[in-house]
């Protein structure tokens, strides 16, 4: 199973840069980039911080995709 992320869409909806989002949730810009491109799956804590920042349920930002 793969995790599909909607962080990029949520960020562009709010017209935020990666650096602005990174500063808001206390991580580096590259961490946001790695999450958006699917190379890095964040911890529950960071996922909840992102969800709170976008005022969305965490399961709309991160969904499980069943392969095959």
């Amino acid at each position: 199973m793969a995790v599909i992320t909607a962080v990029l869409a949520a960020r562009t909806d709010q017209r935020l840069t990666q650096a602005q989002l990174a500063e808001a949730v206390g991580v580096s810009r590259q961490t946001i980039n790695s999450i958006e491109t699917g190379r890095f799956e964040p911890s529950l804590e960071l996922a909840l911080k992102l969800a709170r920042h976008f005022d969305q349920p965490v399961e709309t930002l991160f969904t499980l995709h069943e392969e095959g």
Partner: peptide, 8 residues
């Protein structure tokens, strides 16, 4: 002082 990706 670093974020979780660094520590991972």
């Amino acid at each position: 002082r670093q974020d979780e990706l660094f520590n991972r």
